Amino acid sequence: MIGEVAPVDEHLCSAKGCRRTAGHAVIWRNPKLHTPERRKVWLACDDHRQSLADFVALRGFLIEVVAVEDLTDADG
């Protein structure tokens, strides 16, 4: 997995040990812990987008996957 390392002011992938620039946002919520309006975000590079989305989807937490530039103030 060769990828570009993100500059300090860029969004970094949330996958363990990954320091690449994130282009995707995996938006999720644990309904046992979070209110319906809460939207948690994991950032993902191209290589980790699917595995991070699958991890939260398997638990029933996945809301959606969007491009980082499509994040809103409600996400966080």
Results as ranks from 00 to 15, higher is better:
R39A: 06
A6Q: 04
H48F: 06
E64Q: 15
V65C: 02
A67F: 08
S14M: 04
D9Q: 11
L62I: 04
S14R: 00
R38G: 01
Q50F: 10
L12P: 00
C45L: 05
L33E: 14
V65S: 02
R38F: 08
L71F: 05
V68T: 14
D73Y: 07
H34C: 07
E69V: 14
A67E: 12
E69K: 15
R38I: 10
H24A: 05
V5E: 11
L62K: 13
E64F: 07
V26C: 05
G76E: 08
K32Q: 11
K40I: 06
A25H: 01
L33G: 06
I27A: 01
L43D: 05
W28T: 00
A25I: 02
W42R: 05
E69N: 15
I2T: 12
T35D: 14
R39H: 14
L43C: 06
H48P: 00
L52V: 07
E69W: 12
K16G: 06
I2N: 12
I2D: 11
V68H: 12
F55M: 10
D73C: 05
K40W: 05
I63P: 00
V41S: 09
A57W: 02
V41A: 08
F55Q: 12
E64S: 14
H34N: 14
E4W: 06
A74N: 13
